[in-house]
Amino acid sequence: MNPSDVLLLPGWQNSTEGHWQTEWEQAHGYRRVEQHDWMAPKRGDWSARLEEVVADAPGPVVLAAHSLGCILVAWWAAHSRHAHKVRGALLVAPGDVEQPDVAALIHGWSPIARQALPFPAIVVASSDDPYCTLARARALADGWGARCVDVGAHGHLNAASGLGLWPQGHALLHSLMAEHND
């Protein structure tokens, strides 16, 4: 796969400098899916944008999502005509938009789609994520038919977590790519 076949799906407010997604984009040439409004995300708009990018991809893609991006992947996969083009998804620190504190910040993203994803997926969770408990991340992974990896206490696995290029996450991404290479 080409680096541009790896699609980075940031969450609410995008991924800033120091975030592993930004580091991967700069170091590996992965492609960020740009959304119309990072500050007031609308599920329908974000889903339509992902559908457009995947449909336009010349071949299969791999998704690397963070936070609200994980919730987007589940919703999109339940409604997409192009989910068959996804080889796998790395779903890092899903944001629990059904949790009252999070729902108050991000409207219109509930309920979370809980069907089994039509492609292999790994959910990566932190034991002290303020936006999703480890138990909840495991329950989401179960519903999505994904493997769940507990990486310990690293907060929301974002720029504040200080992961840099995050080799552990990159190895998980590569395991999805290698597992399903033709």
Rank of each mutant, 00 (worst) to 15 (best):
K85Y: 08
W24V: 04
W20C: 08
V6A: 04
G11F: 02
A116H: 15
P60M: 11
L68C: 03
T22H: 14
P120M: 12
A64G: 05
S15L: 06
A27E: 14
W12G: 05
D5S: 15
A77I: 02
Q115C: 11
L105C: 10
A89I: 09
G44N: 08
A116E: 15
A65Q: 04
L105E: 13
P58H: 09
D5M: 14
R114L: 12
A103F: 05
D45T: 14
L72S: 07
H107D: 14
P58L: 09
A74I: 06
G18L: 09
L8M: 10
S80R: 12
V97Y: 03
H84A: 15
D96Y: 08
G11H: 02
H82C: 11
G29K: 11
L50G: 06
H79M: 08
G11R: 04
L50I: 06
P94I: 00
V53Y: 04
G44K: 03
A104V: 06
E25D: 11
A27D: 13
A104P: 08
S4W: 04
T16Q: 13
H79F: 02
C70S: 11
W75C: 03
L8Y: 06
W38P: 01
G69D: 03
V86D: 10
L50V: 07
A74W: 03
A65I: 09
Q13D: 02
A57S: 14
V61D: 05
R43D: 00
K42T: 07
L91M: 11
Q35I: 00
Y30C: 12
L9M: 08
D37M: 00
R43T: 00
P111C: 01
C70G: 11
D5I: 12
E17H: 11
A121K: 03
R81Y: 00
D96H: 11
Q35E: 02
A55S: 14
Q115T: 13
R81P: 10
S80Y: 11
R114C: 08
W24G: 05
W109S: 00
A116Y: 04
S67I: 10
D45N: 10
A113Q: 09
H36V: 14
A113H: 03
D37H: 01
T16V: 12
E98P: 05
V102C: 04
E52H: 07
H36Y: 09
W109P: 02
R114V: 06
L8I: 13
A64W: 03
S80T: 10
P58C: 09
F119A: 10
L117I: 10
L105Q: 15
G88V: 10
I106D: 01
D96N: 15
K85R: 15
Q115G: 14
H107Y: 09
V54Q: 05
A78M: 03
V73L: 10
G108Y: 02
H28N: 12
I71L: 00
F119V: 06
H79L: 08
R31P: 08
Q21D: 04
D101M: 06
L90C: 05
G18A: 14
D5L: 09
A65R: 04
P41M: 03
L63H: 07
R49D: 05
A116D: 10
